[in-house]
Amino acid sequence: MSNPATDVSAHEVTPPGDFEIKDYLRLDLMPHFMCPGCGHGIALRALLWAIHELGIEKDNLAIVSGIGCSGRVGAYIDASTFHFTHGRPLAMATGLKLARPDLTVIVISGDGDCLAIGGNHLIHACRRNLDITCLMLNNEVYGMTGGQVSPTTSESMLTTTTTTGNIEPAFDACKLAEAAGAGLVGREVTLQVPTLKNLIRDGITHQGFSFLEVISDCTEIYGRKNDLGESPEMILKQKSDLRPESFGNTADRPFRPNKLETGVLARSDRPEYGVAYRAHAARAKTRGGGK
C-alpha cells in the first residue's frame, strides 16, 4: 500500500507472516482478467490469507462461483474450482457439501448473482445453515455486462440502465441473510484487508452457513460513470461510508444512503444442516426408514 492517498493510519498493519499469495494462485493464468483497480483482487487476497492462516489444504478446498466478475475470481485459486451457472453457485455448493462434508466449500458470488438471479438460493442456504461460506463481492453493479443497475446499486446512482439515476431501493444483504437464518453474517470493506481476512476466518470456522458481504469497488465502470474517482479514492470512500458523520463536507462524501455496519453482524449457533441431516438419517436407518 504505497499510495499516499491510502490513509491506513487508523488501522493496525498486520504483517502477513509467512503468507505468500503466490502459493495459492494459479500463476499460469496470470495476468488476471480483472480491471485495474477492481476491489475483487483485494477480496481474493484476504480470502487466501484466511485460508492460509487456517491451514486449509488446497486439495480439500472447493471454490464455487457463479457468473459475473465475481464468478471469474475463483479460477485463479489453486484448488478444486467450479465456475457454475448464473445465480446457482449456492445450490451447486449445497449438493457438493452434502455429498462431500470433508471439503471446505467456499462460494464467491456477486450482488447480481447472489441477490437477483440467485436470491432464492441465498435465502434457502441461510435457512438450511449448511456449512458453506459465501463471499458476496458487492460492487453495486453488473460489471461484466457493461454496468447495469443491480439490487445493491445505491439510490440516485447512474448505471447504463438507470441513466437518470437509480430510483430502486437497494437491498441490505446482511439484514436479509440474518432474517433468513444464516449462522454467521458479516460485512467488511476491501479498505481493511486484515480485518476482512479475520472476518473470512470467522466465516470459515463457523459451523454453519456464513454470509459475508464484501464491499468491493468497480472503478472502471461504476466509478467512472458516477465520478467516484480512481480506485484509491473509491476505496477511501468506504471509510466515509463507515463513518459518514466525519466526512460530511469533503470529496469523500459517502454515496451510500446508510452508514455501513461492518464486522460480524449476527451469529447463531443453531445446528449445522449437514450434521443434522446425517444424524436424522442415521436414526431413521435404525428405525427402518419410517412408514
Partner: peptide
C-alpha cells in the same frame, strides 16, 4: 447413507445434483 434434499426450486435441484456429482 445417501443424501436426499428437497431444494428451493427446479434450477437448484439440478444444481445440487451437479454439485454432488462433481463431488464424486
Amino acid at each position: 447413507d445417501g443424501t436426499f434434499i428437497q431444494m428451493e426450486d427446479e434450477m437448484g435441484s439440478l444444481a445440487a445434483v451437479i454439485g454432488a456429482s462433481l463431488g464424486g
